[in-house]
Simulated assay, not measured.
Amino acid sequence: MHDLLRAVRDEPRPPRPPARGRWDWALVVVLVAAALIEGVLRPDMPWRVLGVAVTAGLAPLLLWRRSHPLVVFLAAFAVSSLVPLATGGEATETYTIAYMLLLVYALFRWGSGREIVAGAVVAVAKAGLWGVLGYTAAADVLPGLAVVCAAGALGTALRYRAGSRDRELEQARMLERESVARDLHDTVAHHVSAVAIRAQAGLAVAESRPGAAVEALTVVESEASRALAEMRAMVRVLRRGRPADLEPSPGIGDLAALAGPGGPGPTVDVAVTGDVDGLSPSVGTAVYRLAQEAVTNARRHARDVTRIDVRVEADDASVRLSVRDDGDAGPRRPSVVPGYGLIGMAERADLLGGTCTAAPDPDRGWSVRAVLPRNGVRE
Rank of each mutant, 00 (worst) to 15 (best):
R177I: 03
E221A: 13
H191P: 01
R198Y: 04
A227D: 03
D186S: 10
T187K: 03
H191T: 02
S225N: 14
S179L: 14
S225H: 02
R209K: 04
E178V: 12
L217V: 11
G202V: 02
R198L: 13
H191N: 04
A194M: 07
A224K: 04
A229W: 00
E230D: 14
L203P: 07
S179E: 12
A199K: 05
S179C: 05
E223H: 13
P210C: 01
Q200H: 06
R177H: 13
V219D: 15
A196G: 05
S193C: 01
A206Q: 15
A201L: 13
Q200P: 00
L217H: 11
A229D: 11
S193Y: 02
E221Y: 07
A201T: 03
R226S: 12
V214K: 08
A224W: 11
L217R: 07
T218V: 09
V219F: 08
S225F: 01
P210Y: 04
S208K: 09
G202L: 13
S208E: 14
S193I: 03
I197G: 07
A201N: 03
H191D: 09
A206F: 07
V180N: 11
H190F: 10
R182M: 14
R182P: 00
P210G: 09
A201E: 15
D186T: 09
L217P: 04
S222D: 14
P210W: 01
M231V: 00
